[in-house]
Simulated scan of single mutants.
Amino acid sequence: MTLTLTVSDEVRALAPGFTHVAVQARGLVNGPSDEASSALLDEAARRLRERLGALAPHEDPHMAAWRDAYTAFGAKPSRTRNSAEALARRALADGGLPRINRLVDVYNAISVAHLIPVGGEDTDRIAGSMRLVRATGDEPFPTVAGGEAAVEHPDAGEVVWCDDEGVTCRRWNWRQGVRTRLTEESVNALFLLEGMAPHCGLEQAAAELAELLEKVSPGARVTVHAPVAAGA
């Protein structure tokens, strides 16, 4: 079954250039990070350095467009960076990219290599459909604070992804919640690639992601859905 994704009219008005591509996969086999997934992250960092040259991540035109979108809904992009910019900064730092698990490593590598925000959700943990909306401020956001389970709430007007139980990702793609994140036990997943420009490379990135998922999980059923513009 295909998971339904919708973008609210308020978000469309805020960011007319927003587009997204969904990659749905079933029958995945996840596990701890390994040499192969670690190599993908190292290669992604190399590709990022080649792409940026002397630029800092936030100076890339696509990242600049994301910063404009964050500013439009009241976030401070230098404090709460979109996920691609945050990962890119880590990729260029001495410590490099974190190793989480094979599936997360794969989509993080795609995000860094293409400088595109990419998220992964366990579809077995999603309640109903997923919606990109401007928050009321009352929605629950399960997270971890100080090593303990906690429930936060987004700011009123903040752009969030949510399902029928609450927020799954705050500030568009800044921080994912714990409820739907991919764990080593995840077998069915939705990967969401997000763009703020018509030629930011979403389709190429989605095709590469699908190829990698089939490689790390032979036998998985992977479907790439067509790009969707916010104004569509």
Score class of each variant (00 low, 15 high):
Ser129Gln: 14
Ser129Tyr: 03
Met130Ile: 07
Leu132Trp: 12
Val133Lys: 09
Val133Trp: 09
Ala135Asn: 04
Thr136His: 12
Thr136Ser: 15
Glu139Asn: 01
Glu139Tyr: 11
Pro140Gln: 04
Pro142Trp: 15
Thr143Arg: 06
Val144Gly: 07
Val144Asp: 09
Ala145Arg: 15
Gly146Thr: 10
Gly147Leu: 14
Glu148Trp: 12
Ala149Gln: 15
Val151Arg: 12
His153Gly: 10
Pro154Asn: 09
Ala156Gly: 08
Ala156Met: 06
Gly157Asp: 09
Glu158Met: 10
Val160Glu: 06
Val160Gln: 05
Cys162Arg: 12
Cys162Pro: 00
Cys162Ser: 12
Cys162Met: 15
Asp163His: 06
Asp163Glu: 08
Asp163Thr: 05
Asp163Ser: 08
Asp163Trp: 07
Asp163Pro: 07
Asp163Lys: 05
Asp164Gly: 05
Asp164Ser: 10
Asp164Tyr: 08
Asp164His: 08
Val167Gly: 13
Val167Phe: 12
Val167Ala: 13
Val167Leu: 11
Arg171Gln: 15
Trp172Thr: 14
Asn173Tyr: 13
Trp174Pro: 00
Arg175Pro: 00
Gln176Tyr: 13
Gly177Arg: 09
Thr180His: 06
Thr180Ile: 10
Thr180Arg: 06
Leu182Trp: 12
Leu182Asp: 05
Thr183His: 06
Glu184Gly: 00
Glu185Leu: 07
Glu185Thr: 07
Glu185Met: 01
Glu185His: 07
Ser186Gln: 06
Val187Lys: 08
Val187Gln: 14
Val187Asn: 03
Val187Asp: 08
Ala189His: 03
Ala189Val: 02
Ala189Cys: 07
Leu190Asn: 05
Phe191Pro: 01
Leu192Ala: 01
Leu193His: 03
Glu194Tyr: 00
Met196Thr: 02
Met196Glu: 02
Met196Pro: 00
Ala197Thr: 05
Ala197His: 05
Ala197Met: 02
Pro198Ala: 01
Pro198Phe: 07
Pro198His: 02
His199Lys: 05
Cys200Gly: 00
Cys200Phe: 01
Gly201Ala: 01
Leu202His: 00
Leu202Ala: 01
Glu203Val: 10
Glu203Thr: 10
Gln204Ser: 07
Ala205Thr: 01
Ala205His: 06
Ala205Tyr: 10
Ala206Glu: 01
Ala206Ser: 10
Ala206His: 03
Glu208Cys: 00
Ala210Ser: 03
Glu211Ala: 14
Glu214Arg: 14
Val216Lys: 01
